[in-house]
Design a protein around this nucleic acid. Structure first.
Lengths: 149, 149
DNA sequence: TATTGTTATACTCTATAACTATA
DNA sequence: TATAGTTATAGAGTATAACAATA
């Protein structure tokens, strides 16, 4: 429908712009954006296999192997075996990983607070109202792989 | 205030998750996320200097020099001199660059359409309503550099 | 002196291809 | 034969430091 098509396009453009916002909010000398997103996934959805994680984050399986090795080396994640299927490696977040994410989120929340305070109240309210939907949107994307024609 | 603090935190978490959504929606064998965001900025705000662009995108000045060189090599951007201040290099987007962005946005809009169709109408409406505010938020971030304690 | 931009260098991150182990 | 994961290698991308040119 035309109304939907218009907001699809606007949303596509909006997502592009969010990239620079997200980069700007990332603490410079810290873990990568993908690493942070992966830790967030591990924090929310418990231990996961490498392939599963790779699919959710939109990286290749070897890429996830390397990322997990990096995180393990930093003490932020931990590998363990799967009881039933010995091919599977389960990856979980450590206490240090949780702490890092908590600190990072607190810092971001502060920075966002400063920006949000400069927005009209209408805009702030609209963003707050849209958050649950945005969360469900990202969950959908994690579940159903996107087609790349 | 407490209500604001809660949504700051939720927004901080939401932005984290958007990283994987954005990556997933990016066509695999195309330009980088930063390159796309930079072209979007050039498309919207006309020719800009290297330093200005670097600040807006949250990368270093040498990083932007290299990115612009890459874009120029691909025929997507073009350097030109500044009439008054000969230190300045103005960077503009080419017709090919505009075309690439248009194609990319159309593809994203399609993909988003498929995802949005699976969301409850309430969520879709809320996201559409929040878009202008999100756009203003990213503009604020581009204007006022964020403090990294 | 301050500002704009480039070059040189090194490191992080990610992908593709080839391989091992288990089902 | 199919699936889960790793290793090897190469390339893209970005940062820091040092430099050149203009204001």
């Amino acid at each position: 429908m035309s109304a939907t098509a218009v907001s699809d396009r606007a949303l596509a453009i909006g997502l592009e712009r969010l990239v620079s916002l997200i980069r700007r909010l990332a603490p410079p000398s810290s873990i990568s954006l993908t690493a942070a997103s992966t830790l967030a996934t591990l924090m929310a959805d418990g231990p996961l296999g490498i392939s599963d994680l790779a699919a959710r984050e939109g990286v290749t399986q070897p890429g996830m192997t390397q990322l997990v090795s990096r995180l393990e080396g930093q003490g932020l994640a931990r590998r363990s075996g799967h009881a039933a299927d010995r091919r599977v490696v389960l990856v979980g977040i450590t206490a240090a990983g949780r702490q890092l994410m908590a600190d990072r989120r607190a810092l971001r929340a502060e920075q966002l607070s400063l920006l949000l305070d400069q927005l009209p109240a209408d805009d702030r309210d609209a963003i707050a109202t849209a958050l649950p939907g945005l969360t469900r949107l990202t969950e959908l994307a994690a579940t159903e792989p996107v087609q790349h024609a």
